[in-house]
Amino acid sequence: MHGIPLKPTVELQAVHKFYGDFHALCGVDLTIGKGEVCVAIGPSGSGKSTLLRCINQLEIVSAGRISLNGELQGYREIDGRLHQLSARQIAEQRRRTGMVFQRFNLFPHMTALQNVTEGPVHVKGRPSKLAKEEGNALLERVGLGGLGNRYPNQLSGGQQQRVAIARALAMDPEVMLFDEPTSALDPELVGEVLDVIKDLARAGMTMMLVTHEIGFAREVADHLVFMDNGAIVESGRPQEVLSNPGEARTRAFLSKVF
């Protein structure tokens, strides 16, 4: 799929984000094609996570536009002016993106299976018997068959994160967003989560990942972006960016992490 122009799934145009006076994102343009895996790397505080959180509107952009499959996120544009969508409409848009968090954020009062079926049953209104079957199949897919009745605190970090991935997949999203999915894991548990993500990439899921696992980024990414100080400094195929970085900042960062 490399090199072939893809139908864009996610499109960011000149996105800025301010927290008070702090300029967290400074004019980011990014396109993620259908079935493409885009990985963002860069130092802490470079705006990678903020960018991801803007895509599913956990953060509201200060300037610029984000669209998902051609649909503007968060606003309706009438005669060149942006009109804020209602909370209900924003919730509906969010159903089309799946998000996996660094700290898993599983619902602790629900079992693994209930975590996975919560969205389909209580957001989409799917019949609970059907949702359970599909939920069990998803848990099977992330390698957790038979653990559906465990509560999150009875699972290891890697297992919890895989439940979180299954929970996001259960909504049948058009794009999956991963916010440092392995940063809170013990080293020996990282592999099991990355394997699940690799499987998803092979299955053609459109994804954007923020990660510090450079080796993994090289392996799984179709498109790698390096961010620093709220801007995309470098962008391209992972081999190019990692082996032959054009920017001094990228070189400095890579020399520290390798």
Binding site: R94, G98, F101, N105, H122
Partner: peptide
């Protein structure tokens, strides 16, 4: 309650009323 609970619920598209009731 950790702020991440609300965010996780928002991320699966829950309405605010459901987030209160279910999460």
């Amino acid at each position: 309650i950790d702020r991440g609970q609300t965010e996780a619920a928002q991320a699966i598209g829950m309405s605010q009323a459901k987030i209160w009731r279910r999460i």
